[in-house]
């Protein structure tokens, strides 16, 4: 009974604790601005699930129109409404991943899954390299360094040439190119954390290597990892844009910002603004995530002091 009363008493305080932790975002103006931009696009993505001004894939209008009262941002070279396409374009990045060969989508956008992938792979490799050291460290880091030595675009091309186009392939490409960076970060954190006495305590208890890596070290690395992950979502969106621009990104029918830039580029003399809108969309989301991550990092390091 005593236990029960304790848990009921603790419930609001937990929410309070969460709010206290989350509210450090508002301590930094940079983080607040960044978060507002990101939340704006998330909101747009959710709205587009239920409503867009017109069907984004239907050619209902005159081609290459400038902004006007019916089509707020104009139309593209096939007469499709740019605003509707821009709104729908957020979905594949942030909200859904289309599985090949069916109409089924899983929640979580390509950028999100790609970053989660590189975080998991990078963490696994980085923890092993950092905590175990010795040959593990040598082999893992040499391989990753070799991977980093390739230009990113070449890596993308190799992955896509080998596996073909598709949402999952783009996720895989982002995972592979992102993992070395995460691994380096986690390794450096693990090298620092493993010198602490609580790691000695776990070792003298005879804990397994996996327990020490994932239960003792990883929780203390989550702050920097969170910030890094957020930055990486920005990079991933950029990468998706690049791939779309090269025409090897996310497959149709859903609109993709990079692809929109690419198609509008061909008609740049007929409708200049059509290039600008998706470019601004990509830039603002990436800048928003960067500001958010930077502000958060500043506040987190200040709080540790």
């Amino acid at each position: 009974m005593a236990v029960q009363s304790m848990t009921t008493k603790r419930q609001p305080s937990r929410w309070e604790k969460f709010w206290n932790t989350a509210s450090i975002v508002f301590e930094s103006r940079v983080a607040t601005v960044g978060m507002s931009i990101v939340l704006f696009w998330v909101l747009v993505a959710f709205i587009s699930l239920f409503w867009t001004p017109y069907d984004p894939n239907a050619s209902n209008f005159t081609q290459n129109l400038g902004p006007n009262t019916t089509n707020l941002l104009g139309t593209d070279h096939l007469g499709r409404d740019i605003l509707s396409r821009l709104m729908q374009g957020t979905q594949v990045i942030l909200l859904k991943t289309r599985l090949p060969g069916s109409d089924i989508s899983i929640p979580g956008g390509v950028a999100i899954w790609g970053v989660l992938g590189s975080l998991s792979l990078g963490t696994l490799l980085g923890l092993n390299a950092g905590y175990r050291g010795g040959w593990w460290d040598q082999i893992i880091m040499q391989v990753l360094d070799a991977l980093i030595a390739f230009p990113r675009i070449v890596l993308y091309l190799v992955v896509i040439a080998a596996l073909g186009q598709g949402d999952l392939v783009v996720i895989l490409a982002i995972t592979i190119t992102g993992a070395p960076g995460v691994a380096r970060l986690v390794r450096s954190l693990a090298l620092d954390i493993k010198t602490r006495d609580y790691i000695r305590a776990a070792e003298t208890r005879g804990e397994s290597v996996w327990y020490i890596m994932f239960r003792e070290i990883l929780p203390n690395a989550r702050g920097p990892l969170l910030v890094d992950g957020m930055l990486r979502v920005g990079y991933a969106i950029f990468a998706i844009g690049t791939l779309g621009f090269l025409g090897i990104g996310l497959p149709p029918p859903d609109p993709d910002w990079g692809n929109m830039v690419n198609e509008a580029r061909r008609n740049i003399f007929a409708n200049q603004l059509a290039v600008i809108w998706p470019a601004v969309a990509i830039a603002s989301l990436v800048i928003g995530l960067n500001l958010f991550a930077d502000g958060l990092r500043e506040e987190l390091t200040r709080y540790q002091k």
Binding site: R196, D197, Y198, R200, A201, E216, P219, N220
Partner: peptide
């Protein structure tokens, strides 16, 4: 252990 600040996992 010696150092009270690192003897516990934060």
């Amino acid at each position: 252990f010696q150092n009270p600040d690192s003897t516990m996992n934060p």
